Computed example of a mutant assay.
Amino acid sequence: MRILIWHVHGSWTTAFVQGPHTYVVPVTPGRGPDGLGRARTFDWPDSVVELPPERLRDAGIDLVVLQRPHEYDLVRRWLGRRPPMVYLEHNAPHGCSPGVPDTRHPVADLPGDVPLVHVTHFNRLMWDAGGAGTTVIEHGIVDPGPLWTGEVPHAAVVVNEPVRRGRTTGTDLLPTFAHAAPLDVFGMGTDGLAGHLGLPPGRCRSHELVQKDLHAAMARRRLYLHPVRWTSLGLSLLEAMHLGMPVVALATTEVTEAVPPGAGVVSNRIDVLTDTVRDFVADPLHARMVGEGARAAALARYGLTRFLDDWERLLKEVTR
């Protein structure tokens, strides 16, 4: 099967393209948002091919994975026809009006029958999809291996643009956590974060690493801290669990499903979370034991084979 998919979410797509198909990603001059082409910081197989929009009509596309509302019109313009489609929603609703519980999903207003695929059950619960058929295919992770050493007694945090995103990513909570343990914050737009938070650099260090270096750097830290208030389900949390890191996380969105007892501590009490951070820093053997539980849980629920099998069943159903 030849599947058209835009390069929108590099981490998720890295798992998806491990399947048995040919994956066609649009590429445009300048590699703008509608034509990023192949990833440059993720390891994608040769089955992912770049094509400019003007060549897509003759590319033999069998199915399209939409991820943004305007892609529906791009398909009609670039392909001149409407192959079978599914709409993949990565995010939880984040509207101000009429409010999250009443936020209507764009797929509800698309013509035709376009199935909506959510990555978490929380997202499915929160979006109003109208009469669109919906399903959930939970995340899958390309296993980086049990790399955790925990030799650096710091907490790792992975977040992009923490200053701009503010309370959404729990940036305002970082000074409190920084009193419990030094923080190493990885992600784009983290430069100058310590100064923005009024913290000395030794309590909050910023790192902008490409993906291939990120896992090794995370795994050297004692624990993974997930202070995010509102997101779908951060893939960095699942990657940290695969690495064998103990996790400390807010009990928001899908986190309580992803982190079972024995894999870390999940709570909305900041005092409980900061005490746990201190405990992991002070007791590396305990951190190792909990991290092993985190890895086992992540492999069982978010393993790549289950993910690809779930998608294969859906793709066959949509194209039959």
Rank of each mutant, 00 (worst) to 15 (best):
A59H: 06
I141Q: 03
R31I: 10
E71K: 05
E89C: 12
L125C: 06
T135G: 14
D102M: 10
V117M: 04
E89A: 09
H139C: 01
P26K: 12
V100M: 06
L51F: 03
R40Q: 15
D102T: 07
T120L: 14
Y72F: 15
L56F: 09
F122N: 12
P144W: 04
G30C: 08
W44N: 06
G32W: 10
D62E: 05
A108F: 02
L125S: 13
Y23D: 07
T28Q: 11
H94Q: 15
P84M: 00
D73E: 15
V136W: 10
G60L: 08
P106D: 08
D58W: 07
W78D: 07
Q67I: 09
F16R: 08
W6I: 08
G99R: 06
V49K: 03
Y23M: 06
H105N: 06
R68S: 07
V17R: 11
D62P: 01
V65P: 01
D46W: 02
L116E: 02
L66Y: 04
T22V: 15
P93N: 11
W12V: 08
I61E: 01
D43G: 11
W148I: 05
T120R: 08
F42S: 09
N123W: 01
F42K: 11
P33D: 14
D46K: 05
P53D: 04
T103A: 11
G10Q: 05
G37F: 09
R82E: 15
R77G: 06
T134Q: 11
L56K: 05
T120D: 15
T135Y: 01
E71S: 05
S47R: 12
V64K: 00
W148A: 14
V48D: 10
V65W: 00
V100T: 13
M126P: 03
D113C: 01
N91Y: 08
G19L: 09
G150I: 09
L63H: 00
G19M: 05
V117I: 13
L147P: 08
G145C: 07
L4E: 03
N91D: 14
D73T: 08
C96Y: 09
A39P: 01
V48L: 13
P53I: 13
L110C: 02
R68E: 15
V27N: 05
A108K: 02
T135C: 13
P53M: 02
R40E: 13
H118W: 10
S11L: 09
H139E: 06
R76E: 12
G60I: 12
P146E: 15
T14H: 09
T13S: 10
A39H: 13
R38P: 11
R2L: 00
G80W: 14
H21V: 03
D46I: 04
G35T: 07
P144S: 12
H118Q: 02
V114E: 00
L74C: 04
R2G: 00
N123P: 02
G30K: 07
R68C: 02
G112W: 00
P106W: 11
R2A: 00
G145D: 07
Q18E: 12
D143F: 12
